[in-house]
């Protein structure tokens, strides 16, 4: 068993990776003919205590990635290695229980993520009831009070109902619920998108503090690029079910390689009016193609300003072009560029 585990670790990635995802796919069959490829073969790894930001337009499949990792959805294909566990296909009861404990999720909409008929204390202690049924009522209550304090609420809130709280407070309750079972890995599915800006910073700071205190690992899904940069160590950019670029957050913002990333980053407004006036924005033409009908070759080619003949034929490989910076684009592939007779883009 230990030998097997070791082998997995050495073959897949370094020792300190908490989560290694390889070629994960999630397809939804809509009817007999159409299949919606929400996630279409993505691979990445997250180190212990690290935050990976996942950005992309709405509908690109980032939430589906999160939900597949928490096993709300069963993946169609692919392998996930989590903390020494190999997760592939249907899980047996014991593994499922461990995943339900170790992987938690924070949701986008603080208004629909709390059951309106339950008190805060019932909401937070649900995980405790499921995973430690032997815990006494008193201990459970004590734990709920601790968790409330931890997320910046207080124990007087325990007996109240969700409608009595503001959006930011509700999100804190959601975080407390996720922390109740002491997870190792948290998927934050746009936890700040529904909050107003002043509260966004509070919640992000709370998540950061909790990470430092408890060594949590996050997958932070968002579409707000500036917030993602602030919280993430590395950022993955998704387009139509695939990761097109993955790099350290500084590197990605300073030197975006993929044309899609460049377009995304150029859309961030600058706080300086002088610079803002001269800001060059790459405007993409057309709409995102439907995930039920993905273009051949490179899936970004229909909107790419640099599209070449090869792009329609060959699906670009997701490769590391410099240490820690991977991209899926032919512009950085010497072989293809030579064939096209164009100059290779230098990194």
């Amino acid at each position: 068993m230990t030998h097997e585990l070791k082998e997995q670790h050495t073959t897949n990635a370094g020792q300190d990776d908490l989560l290694v995802v390889s070629d994960l796919k999630k397809h939804f069959r809509l009817n007999r003919k159409t299949v919606l490829k929400a996630v279409d073969g993505i691979s990445f790894s997250i180190k212990k205590g690290e935050t990976l930001g996942l950005v992309g337009e709405s509908g690109c499949g980032k939430s589906t990635v999160g939900r597949t990792l928490t096993r709300i959805y069963e993946p169609t294909d692919g392998e996930v290695h989590f903390d020494g566990l190999k997760l592939k296909g249907r899980l047996d009861g014991k593994t499922k229980k461990r995943i339900n404990r170790d992987v938690q999720m924070i949701f986008q909409d603080p208004y629909s993520s709390l059951n309106p008929r339950m008190t805060v204390s019932e909401i937070i202690s649900e995980g405790l009831v499921i995973h430690n049924p032997d815990m006494s009522q008193k201990d459970r209550e004590k734990r709920v009070h601790e968790l409330l304090l931890l997320v910046g609420l207080n124990k007087n809130h325990a007996g109240r109902y969700p409608h009595e709280f503001s959006g930011g407070q509700r999100q804190r309750i959601g975080i407390a619920r996720a922390l109740a079972v002491e997870p190792k890995f948290i998927v934050a599915d746009e936890p700040i998108a529904a909050l107003d800006v002043s509260i966004q910073a509070q919640i992000v700071n709370l998540l950061k503090e909790l990470q430092e205190e408890r060594g949590l690992t996050y997958l932070f899904i968002a579409h707000d690029l500036s917030m993602v940069k602030y919280i993430s160590d590395r950022i993955a950019v998704m387009y139509l079910g695939k990761i097109v670029e993955l790099a350290g957050s500084e590197a990605l913002y300073e030197k975006p390689l993929h044309p899609y990333t460049q377009a995304l980053l150029s859309a961030i407004p600058l706080p300086d009016p002088e610079k803002e006036r001269t800001r060059e924005q790459i405007v993409l033409t057309g709409d995102v193609p439907s995930p039920t009908d993905i273009p051949s070759g490179c899936r970004f080619r229909t909107r790419c300003p640099f599209a070449m003949d090869s792009c329609a034929v060959i699906d670009p490989e997701f490769r590391e072009v410099e240490p820690g910076h991977s991209v899926a684009c032919h512009l950085y592939d010497a072989e293809i560029m030579a064939k096209e007779g164009k100059e290779l883009k230098t990194v």
């Binding site: 939900r67 928490t70 096993r71 709300i72 499922k96 229980k97 339900n100 404990r101 992987v103 938690q104 999720m105 949701f107 986008q108 909409d109 629909s112 993520s113 709390l114 059951n115 909401i123 649900e126 995980g127 499921i130 995973h131 959601g174 619920r177 996720a178 079972v181």
Partner: peptide, 13 residues
């Protein structure tokens, strides 16, 4: 489809 049901499912209810 409400998120509180999904949350409960991620907890293994």
């Amino acid at each position: 489809g409400q998120e509180f049901v999904l949350a409960s499912r991620t907890l293994g209810a």
